[in-house]
Design a protein around this nucleic acid. Structure first.
Lengths: 338, 338
DNA sequence: TTGAAAGCGCTAACAA
DNA sequence: TTGTTAGCGCTTTCAA
């Protein structure tokens, strides 16, 4: 087997130039003559030279690695985010180092990230432990929370306007003539779920309605299904349900239609939040609030790279507008809501 | 701002030992006394030392980075794979470097991977260009194709038994009394789609049936929907459809039921392949062939790491058994198929 | 513009 | 078991 790693020195030798000349030829914006660059590239080509990003990272202190922490990919919203985030970062010359939280092991995962000298961290996972936020701050590694925030730490975040989205949903249901309106939450400690609920309750209050019932679905299909059953256990069932995200709403709709024999929206309206692709599928046709996924990703990348490249760690909290998407799963008001 | 990077020399100085003693203390299985390790860890703790994985990778030639190339995450099968693969690799001390193919730019993406000195590559994307396979071979970087194979290159691969899965589906439909059985393919150049079709046709032939019709869905919802419409354009429509994967099948079912007013399985049976979570949703209740996702991931990791760790690049092609999952989208035979 | 030289933080011989 | 020493492949001064 021939020598498998070609180094800049090998190229330099062949091109009869110094090793640093090779380095410069591969550094955009370095001071090299065209002639030099041509010679170097020719030699590099001949040898199949490829700069070693690890060595470059080591000496320059810039790994161009961004850690992406995700908790679970069941909810289709996250794969979409992952895909777009990865593309956006690649386009700017960064690579994504993926990390799945193993729930308990969040801290050790962050250790691993920092060991790899990532230049920034995107957390699209549950909640950020404050130990962890402190650790990142200590190393000066920028962190952006995606689709959640944590007021107890000075960490940047990007969310959609969950409060306003929840509020609009409340108006829609109230104006649609519903009176027993229930909510199925994600997690109690999820800022996203809390905000959606808060906005929803505010919207109901504005229409003089109380929240009729409330259960926690835990962001899982099984949890949501159980919550739905409980909701219909008593003598007076709800006539509308707001489910904290689309992923849970599908499970809820399945229970309502198959197990309870209800028709949607005739017997009960269902609305949710995210607008994942499945929400548009004919079988669900779910009225929901669309998260501006692409804009959220762009904002995340912009904030993160601003901090990475300027090494200025100033907190930013982007809240992007969400948009109500009317489909067939909820009875509509006679006239559009005011 | 205090010095932000703590090195092994800093720890050594504080612990009054040599720098290599620090290195050893952090290397599992190195020859260090308990006493030494204790002192080193104490000092490390005090300073907040964290070994630099980049420097380690550089000197040892082992980055512990595995590149994962994915094309699109629309099909929910891939996020699931991604999640499991990432966990499996993390558990073995490797990290996943994510790459999304931008279709045309597959080659440059592989350049990037190699620049980062990844120790292995998993390709869960369309097809592998042979240029690219050659390049990887040249650097001695092991590659495993996930859920596809390429007979023209000596690259390892992991798939489920697509031939047999297709065959069983054919038997199921034939024995269920269908006679006009159609197929909606993924891509013509996808080994997976080709094998499923080949097995399917074989199974039909074994029951004395021809393939009634055939269209290409291109693995997208829109493509599949269009294919479904075309299928029902003529005067004699099919009475059963095998769709190359679940993701397309959902779109097909939506078209059949909503646009064409057909009932499933009464008017037409639909079967597919993958068994993504949505296939079990009440609204689709899709009869499908389950890919053994976890086993496929395990096999991929095993083959890849075997090659990585033994530096022996011998081709392996794992074909794992798939399992028919009977649900409500296809009319069943009176008696189980023989 | 170019080359020489000094490391980045670490592991891995080799001695002691 | 421990310390000394020599790099890994590269970027970045500093002189020329």
């Amino acid at each position: 087997m021939p020598k498998v790693t070609v180094t800049s020195s090998d190229v330099a030798r062949l091109a009869r130039v110094s090793q640093s000349a090779v380095s410069r030829s591969f550094s955009p914006g370095a001071s090299v003559s065209d002639e030099m660059r041509r010679r170097v590239f020719a030699a590099a080509q001949e040898l199949g030279y490829r700069p070693n990003a690890i060595a470059r990272a080591m000496i320059s202190g810039r790994s161009r690695l961004i850690a992406l922490l995700v908790a679970y990919l069941d909810n289709h919203f996250y794969p979409l985010v992952l895909e777009q985030m990865s593309r956006a970062l690649q386009a700017r010359g960064y690579q994504v180092l993926m990390f799945m939280t193993d729930l308990g092991s969040q801290d050790s995962v962050v250790q691993k990230m920092l060991q790899y000298q990532v230049e920034g961290i995107v957390m699209a996972s549950a909640t950020l432990s404050s130990t962890l936020a402190r650790e990142c701050a200590a190393t000066g590694t920028p962190v952006v929370l995606f689709n959640r925030y944590d007021p107890s730490t000075p960490t940047s975040s990007v969310t959609s306007d969950n409060l306003e989205g929840g509020r609009q949903l409340a108006h829609l249901l109230a104006d649609g003539g519903h009176s027993r309106i229930a909510f199925i939450a994600g997690h109690e400690d999820s800022s996203t779920s809390r905000d959606r609920e808060a906005g929803f309750c505010k919207g109901l209050a504005e229409r003089g309605l109380p929240l009729f019932a409330r259960h926690v679905g835990g962001y899982t299909s099984a949890g949501a299904a159980a919550a739905a059953r409980t909701l219909f256990d008593g003598r007076t069932p709800p006539d509308a349900i707001f489910v904290a995200n689309d992923h849970m709403a599908f499970a809820v709709m399945d229970v309502l239609r198959r197990d309870l024999g209800l028709r949607i929206p005739r017997d009960v309206s269902v609305v949710a939040y995210d607008d994942v692709p499945e929400a548009a599928w004919a079988a669900y046709d779910l009225t929901t609030v669309a998260q501006p996924c692409e804009a959220m990703v762009e904002a995340t990348v912009a904030i993160l790279l601003e901090q990475v490249e300027q090494r200025a760690v100033q907190r930013r909290a982007a809240v992007l507008p969400a948009r109500l998407v009317l489909r067939g799963s909820a009875r509509l008001p006679e006239k559009p809501a005011g």
